[in-house]
Design a protein around this nucleic acid. Structure first.
Length: 418
RNA sequence: GUGGCUGUGGUGAAGCGGUUAACACGUACGACUGUGACUCGUAUAUUCGAGGGUUCGAUACCCUCCAGCCACCCCA
């Protein structure tokens, strides 16, 4: 093959793009109902933005970013996630000056230089939503309910909601120390990775899948027991709101995040159907992020969901739209009339197909069948003269006589004038 | 970055040292003088990811490379 796409960058072909559009439309409907407005931000940002938000020491920033120097000698990066860019725009345009409470959503491609595998690609797509300016746990609950509603309305019941709290800069250091103390005594049972993590990010050990580590950390101290009173109150309020709205969830005190900016509430929609890519959507509160990026001290909370992963869960359901009518012609003499008819129908919203190349009637009918047209009609000299034709309902072969006009056909296929 | 598996037509696949490279789907045209589907017929890979090697002979065996998939890692 002469020319192929770049590794980890995929084409979405027409038979799949219908499913994508369905996901996007469902998200738009649910999010906008909740008062979120769409924001469109660039895919390319200054590298510094991601270093300062995601965290210099995270895997994403350390080894997964598409970073390069542009012709003006600026270091730029293809966005590896969406929140940083949205918050940059929020600050840059001083959106908080009019209203500190902003509810924004976005969708689009993200880029991470990782080894591709099932449900994980170098260009992947996320749909995300963010609320700024609300400290109250009510915002956390609304975001979680919205995410739950999205999955319900898209027709998926499998991914389940897990929540946790990571505390805040006040209480997290103490927890980290407590965890270190616990792990120190079990060092010999931990895998090599976790021994290394002990210094850099001990919380990750809780998320390790190596059986030895799982066992060794069974009785590990829980973050939830080390929350300060503020974080504790916040978390229990979130749970109370979720209970009030009967939103199903479970608490996973071992859930950890890979981005540094998260505080307090964190959550994931988890599935068992995608192999190791179990997180279909994830997010959390990021109360320090906006000020960290040079904005005012405004809190935020949001999530992102992986479009590829949702698409995988939806399976191969059909989302293509089918032609209402296929027009076949007997010979070249009728093509002008057929073309005019098709044009008129298209202009009034009927989905029509006709033969492009003057093929035999048999070929044309085969094509009508292949395209899954609901009706077909053959136009010959008789029809042109009489202005009427016999329309065949392809599903059962029944033929019905009708007027060969736009109005007549609209009536037949059940698509009234728009 | 590390590991495992796999590369045969548009697709799914058989063949595993000598075959006209099977079969199925798909596609195109026809049998049916103005009507698809079912049936039947015909046509659809000068070639088996690329390069090298072993051999009288390689799609098959060996080496290198490339690509894809899956897993680790990490994450949505």
């Amino acid at each position: 093959m002469a020319l192929t796409a770049v590794k980890g960058f995929n084409d979405i072909l027409p038979d799949e793009s219908g499913r994508w559009r369905y996901i996007e439309q469902t998200a738009r409907r649910v999010f906008e109902r909740n008062g979120f407005g769409e924001i469109r931000v660039p895919v390319l940002e200054k590298t510094e933005l991601f270093c300062r938000s995601i965290g210099d020491a995270t895997d994403i920033v350390e080894k997964e970013m598409y970073t390069f120097t542009d012709k003006g000698e600026n270091s730029v990066t293809l966005r590896p996630e969406g929140t940083a860019g949205v918050m940059r725009a929020f600050i840059e345009h001083k959106l908080y000056a009019q209203d500190p409470i902003a509810k924004l959503y976005y969708m689009g491609p993200m880029f991470r230089y990782e080894r591709p595998q099932k449900g994980r690609y170098r260009q992947f797509h996320q749909i995300g939503a963010e609320i700024t300016g609300v400290n109250d746990p009510l915002a956390d609950a609304q975001v979680l309910n919205m995410l739950t509603a999205f999955f319900r309305e898209i027709g998926l019941t499998e991914p389940t909601l897990q929540i946790n709290s990571l505390g805040c800069p006040e209480c997290r250091p103490a927890y980290r120390n407590a965890l270190r103390g616990f792990l120190e005594e079990r060092m010999e049972h931990l895998c090599e990775d976790c021994k290394r993590r002990f210094a850099t990010n001990p919380l990750r050990t809780l998320d390790c899948k190596v059986p030895g580590c799982v066992e060794a950390t069974l009785g590990a101290p829980s973050v939830l027991e080390h929350l300060c009173s503020g974080c504790e109150d916040h978390f229990s309020s979130v749970r109370r709101y979720l209970d009030l709205s009967s939103t199903p969830y479970s608490i996973n005190h071992r859930m950890v995040r890979g981005l540094d900016y998260y505080t307090r509430t964190t959550f994931e929609m988890v599935t068992g159907l995608l192999g190791s890519q179990s997180a279909v959507a994830a997010g959390g509160r990021y109360d320090g992020l906006i000020s960290q990026l040079g904005g005012p001290a405004i809190p935020g909370i949001g999530f992102a969901l992986g479009l590829e992963r949702v698409a995988l869960l939806l399976g191969s359901q059909d989302f293509v739209s089918l032609p209402d009518l296929f027009i076949a012609t007997m010979g070249n003499g009728e093509r002008d009339a057929a073309f005019r008819l098709m044009d008129g129908l298209l202009k009034s919203g009927v989905r029509v197909e006709m033969d492009y190349e003057g093929k035999s009637l048999k070929s044309q009918m085969r094509r009508a069948d292949k395209l899954k047209a609901r009706y077909s009609v053959v136009i010959g000299g008789n029809e042109v003269v009489s202005g009427r034709a016999s329309f065949k309902r392809m599903a059962d072969g029944l033929q019905a006589d009708a007027e060969l006009t736009v109005a007549g056909i609209q009536k037949l296929v059940g698509k009234p004038e728009q």
